Simulated assay, not measured.
Amino acid sequence: MRPIMVAGNWKMNGLSADAVHLTQAILHAEMEPMRPEVVIFPPFTLLHAVSQEAKSSALRWGGQNLFWEASGAYTGEISGAMLRDMGCRYVLIGHSERRQIFAESDAQVAQKVKVALLSGLTPVVCVGETEAERAQGATEAVIHRQVEAVLPLLNLETSQPNMIIAYEPIWAIGTGLSASPEQAQAVHAFIRGLVAAYSTQLAKRLLLLYGGSVKGNNAAALFGQTDIDGGLVGGASLQVGEFIQICRAAELAGRGG
């Protein structure tokens, strides 16, 4: 059985006191270690505060983005080594907000995945279609293009995946809408099939997360799907009670319950 993960993306929200409060609340929930694995992605300015609270726990944290160069005259950017220095194990790459607002291309996403891997980070690669693309029946074509851009970076020499893929339908992010469990499962199964073309063993072990208005009241149904291995949670990760409810749903799913 694949492990299950709940990741909270705080986006551009929070100050130091908020980071301490949210992190402590997750820790006080006392979920069984690694079931699920809980990862939070705070803004860069809050990584230190989170690391100080969580350093002796099973809670993990990661960066929301990184640059594809190791160092240099890139004002405002952050490197993989800098994230590792903050204790990060993970990094989000290719979130729809990066793709849309900052015009990140598939090629740039692949560059970032490559440097994340070289830095010893596990990239959580986000893919997803817009409402217009879904209406046009182009969901699979969009997902195929985005996933194929990073699949050559899979470590084919081992059956242990070196990345995570998160399917986030853009039309469901921050809208209150969510793909139905069946819709989400269909896309996750499609992604796993794309990976299987490279390696069936990797496909079986690769974690696929769903993101897009994941809430406490829909998490159990989503996590109960065959190919959904947890969630990448946005707004609800800033609401302590809601986020813990989502984690509890994943905890039950991880136990086969």
Score class of each variant (00 low, 15 high):
148 E>F: 03
110 A>G: 07
51 S>K: 06
136 Q>R: 15
162 N>E: 08
105 S>W: 02
167 Y>A: 03
125 V>A: 07
118 L>A: 14
54 A>N: 00
108 Q>V: 11
166 A>S: 08
96 S>A: 15
110 A>N: 07
164 I>W: 03
162 N>Q: 05
80 G>Y: 05
52 Q>G: 14
73 A>D: 08
85 D>H: 13
74 Y>F: 15
119 S>A: 10
148 E>L: 14
137 G>C: 08
60 R>Y: 00
58 A>Y: 14
161 P>D: 00
165 I>K: 01
93 I>H: 07
113 V>W: 00
111 Q>G: 07
71 S>I: 00
74 Y>T: 11
57 S>H: 09
148 E>G: 08
94 G>K: 01
102 F>V: 04
142 V>K: 15
141 A>P: 05
144 H>I: 03
43 P>Q: 08
86 M>T: 11
143 I>A: 10
44 F>L: 05
97 E>A: 02
72 G>A: 02
67 F>N: 10
58 A>H: 13
108 Q>R: 04
124 V>E: 01
153 L>M: 14
111 Q>A: 12
134 R>L: 13
57 S>N: 06
147 V>N: 15
141 A>Q: 15
51 S>L: 09
161 P>W: 01
74 Y>W: 15
105 S>N: 10
70 A>I: 10
46 L>T: 06
71 S>G: 15
48 H>A: 13
155 N>A: 09
166 A>H: 04
84 R>C: 03
147 V>C: 14
140 E>V: 07
155 N>M: 08
155 N>V: 01
69 E>S: 03
69 E>P: 01
105 S>C: 04
147 V>R: 11
142 V>N: 14
105 S>P: 05
123 P>F: 06
108 Q>W: 02
82 M>F: 07
112 K>I: 02
95 H>G: 00
86 M>C: 12
134 R>M: 07
116 A>N: 10
115 V>N: 00
91 V>L: 12
161 P>C: 07
51 S>H: 13
159 S>F: 05
84 R>K: 15
64 Q>I: 09
81 A>F: 14
124 V>F: 08
127 V>Q: 05
158 T>G: 04
75 T>A: 05
102 F>E: 10
129 E>P: 02
49 A>G: 08
99 R>L: 08
74 Y>V: 12
97 E>W: 01
100 Q>F: 02
88 C>D: 13
116 A>T: 04
137 G>M: 10
116 A>I: 05
156 L>A: 07
139 T>S: 15
166 A>Y: 00
116 A>V: 05
105 S>H: 12
114 K>Q: 13
85 D>W: 11
